[in-house]
Simulated scan of single mutants.
Amino acid sequence: MPARLVEIFLPEAEVTQLEEILPRHCRRYWRETVPGGQEKYSCIVQQRYAERLLNELEAAFESMPTFTAYVAQLEAVLPPVEETAETELLGPNALRPPTAIERFFSRERISTDELYDDIEESLHITPSYLLTVILSSIIAALGMRSGQTAVVIGAMIIAPLLGPTMGVALAATVGNWNLGRKAAGTLLVGALFAVLGGILVGHFVVIDPLVSELQNRTVVQPADIALALACGAAGVLAFSRGASLTLVGVMIAVALVPPLAATGIFLGVDQPVVAASALFLFAINLVCVNVAGIVMFLVQGLPPKNWRITSGILAVWVFILMLLASMMAGRLVFGLGALETGRRYIMGGG
Rank of each mutant, 00 (worst) to 15 (best):
L245H: 09
T87I: 13
L90K: 08
E82F: 12
P97H: 03
I252Q: 09
T112W: 10
Y129H: 11
P65L: 14
F204L: 15
K40H: 01
I125D: 03
I21L: 13
A85Y: 13
A338R: 10
V201A: 15
L267K: 00
I157V: 12
S311R: 13
P35W: 05
V269K: 02
E82M: 13
A100F: 09
R308L: 13
L260T: 15
A253L: 03
L187A: 11
G167E: 08
L314V: 10
V189L: 04
I199K: 04
S240N: 15
V289W: 11
G268T: 02
V273R: 00
I158H: 06
N93V: 12
A338Y: 06
V287M: 11
V34H: 03
A155E: 04
F239W: 09
L237N: 02
L142W: 00
G330L: 12
A234V: 12
L123K: 02
P65S: 14
A275R: 01
Q47T: 14
V274Y: 09
V295M: 08
V287H: 03
P160M: 06
Y41G: 00
G330R: 12
F204V: 01
P98D: 11
T126P: 02
T66N: 04
A278F: 01
V316Y: 07
Y41E: 00
L54M: 10
V273W: 04
A76W: 09
P35S: 07
R48W: 06
R4V: 01
E102R: 08
A155W: 00
G335I: 06
F297L: 10
Y49N: 13
F193Y: 06
A94R: 12
P160N: 11
W317T: 04
D117G: 06
I284S: 15
L54H: 14
P11T: 02
P304Y: 08
Q271H: 15
T68G: 04
H25T: 04
Q148G: 07
G312D: 01
F67A: 03
I110G: 05
L95I: 01
I309V: 09
A169P: 06
P98L: 12
A169Q: 06
S63A: 12
V250P: 00
P2R: 07
V299M: 08
S42I: 08
L123Y: 07
A329H: 15
L229S: 00
A72Y: 14
V316F: 15
G197V: 04
S146A: 15
F280V: 07
G312C: 04
G197Y: 12
R107V: 15
C26R: 01
G198W: 03
R241L: 14
A141F: 04
A325W: 03
A329G: 13
V205K: 01
L188Q: 08
Q215I: 08
V195C: 13
N176G: 02
V236W: 05
S212R: 01
G293A: 11
R217N: 10
R145E: 06
A255I: 05
V236E: 00
E20H: 09
W30T: 06
F67R: 01
A261L: 02
